[in-house]
């Protein structure tokens, strides 16, 4: 590196790999791991280095803060890169002591799209007290939202009665954001429109944070009848545009391998998006 630059400034792929390889400065490694995921790096060294950052943290005595700090970003990047070879390590990370690492691992397993991860994700959510508050803070004992979302992504590929039953128990959770996540997963898995109702109702919630969650969940499901409700919800246009993009690109029940055509439905959605720019 000729001119080391501060995190946040543009770097090249070679420089990002170099920063991840070095072991002296954890913040440089942290930034590099993020960068490689964000930029969808396809370099042959990328996935092995990210995986090494994760397995290092898994092997280390629990609580090595620097390693964990890097491993969380490496975990997220492995998901963004859809690194199939990370399946085993990500599943192992689901059982780590660190809440943040478990959360990143759950999301990345959802992004990997391999239903083989379903049993381990379910097991974590079925633990006694999983959905109870963790101490006095906002966190629950398990990263329930991330676990539920991943189950929705993967369960859609392999429907399973036990999974549906488990997810339904979260419809009674005191936190609206958790109810929304569970309705999202249930809609993705069953395709049954009635699961859209809890999310539609939450679009009108008093708290902005809850409206945002319901907006993003309906977008992630690709449930197109929600389009007008999403566009009219009281939230930032940036989020509405992301949600509507989800309806256009990943309509519920559509084979993700097939491109979406430009039909009357899509034109209607694009018109709604245009009005939000």
């Amino acid at each position: 590196m000729d001119s080391p630059s501060a995190p946040g400034t543009p770097i090249s792929e070679a420089e990002a790999l170099q920063r991840l390889r070095q072991q002296e400065d954890a913040s440089q490694r942290y930034y590099a791991a993020w960068w490689l995921g964000r930029m969808r790096s396809t370099h042959p060294d990328t996935v092995p280095l990210l995986l090494e950052a994760l397995t290092d943290a898994l092997a280390a005595a629990s609580g090595d803060p620097d390693r964990l700090f890097v491993a969380r970003n490496a975990t997220r990047a492995l998901g963004k890169l859809r690194a199939g070879e990370a399946l085993a390590a990500l599943q192992q990370a689901l059982d780590h002591d660190d809440h943040g690492l478990r959360e990143s691992a759950a999301r990345s397993l959802g992004e990997l799209g391999n239903p083989a991860a379903l049993p381990r994700l379910m097991a974590r959510l079925e633990r006694p007290g999983a959905a109870d508050p963790d101490g006095g803070g906002l966190r629950l004992q398990e990263p329930c939202e991330a676990l539920i979302e991943a189950l929705g992504e993967l369960g859609a590929r392999r429907p399973d009665d036990a999974l549906v039953t488990l997810l339904q128990t979260f419809q009674d959770h005191p936190r609206p954001v958790i109810r929304s996540a569970s309705a999202r997963a249930l809609l993705q898995i069953t395709g049954d429109d009635r699961w859209a109702e809890p999310m539609l109702a939450l679009l009108g919630a008093g708290q902005l944070q809850v409206r945002r969650a319901a907006l993003m969940d309906l977008g992630a499901c690709g449930w197109r009848p929600a389009a007008e409700a999403l566009a009219g919800c009281l939230a930032e246009n940036s989020l509405k545009l992301i949600a509507l993009r989800g309806l256009v690109e990943r309509p519920l029940g559509h084979d993700p391998g097939q491109p979406v055509d430009l039909g009357p439905e899509e034109r209607r959605l694009l018109t709604l998006m245009d009005a939000l720019l």
Binding site: R245, V248, L262, L270, M273
Partner: peptide, 11 residues
């Protein structure tokens, strides 16, 4: 790379 941008460009 983003499908919705391609669709809008086509339109």
């Amino acid at each position: 790379e983003v499908p919705v941008v391609r669709l809008r460009a086509r339109q």
